[in-house]
Amino acid sequence: MSAHRPQPRVYVALDSARPQRVRELLGELDPSLCGIKIGKEAFTALGPSVVEWARERGFPVFLDLKFHDIPNTVRQACRAARDLEVSLVNVHASGGRRMLEAAREAIEPGPEAPGLIAVTVLTSMEDADLAEVGVSGGAAAQVERLAGLVVEAGLDGVVCSAHEAGAMSRRFGAGSLVVTPGVRPAGSARDDQRRVMTPSEALAAGATSLVIGRPITGAQSPGRVLEDIVASL
Rank of each mutant, 00 (worst) to 15 (best):
G173R: 07
Q220V: 14
A131S: 12
S232G: 13
D191Y: 12
G95H: 00
F67N: 03
G223H: 10
A81H: 06
G206E: 12
S94A: 15
K40F: 11
G115N: 07
N72K: 10
L33Y: 05
H4L: 03
M99F: 10
G218C: 07
G137R: 02
V22Y: 01
G223D: 11
I229A: 03
V151C: 11
D156F: 11
G154Q: 06
I212W: 00
M125C: 12
A13S: 15
V183G: 00
G157P: 06
E144S: 15
N90V: 03
R145Q: 10
R97H: 12
E52W: 01
V89F: 08
R57E: 11
A128H: 11
M168W: 00
D30R: 08
V22L: 15
K66G: 03
D64A: 06
E41I: 14
V230W: 10
V12C: 09
A162L: 02
E152M: 09
R145T: 10
T44P: 03
T217N: 07
P31K: 06
A189F: 06
R57Q: 14
T180E: 04
I70L: 12
A77T: 08
I117R: 00
G213H: 06
G27S: 06
D69T: 05
A140H: 12
T120P: 01
V51I: 15
V230P: 02
A113F: 09
I117Q: 00
S16W: 13
P71A: 12
G96T: 01
L29G: 06
V151Y: 00
I38A: 04
P19V: 11
E201L: 05
L146H: 09
V143K: 02
A147C: 11
G175V: 05
R18W: 10
T123G: 01
A186V: 13
A207H: 03
S161R: 00
A113S: 15
I117F: 00
G39N: 10
G175R: 06
V159C: 02
L65Q: 06
A141D: 12
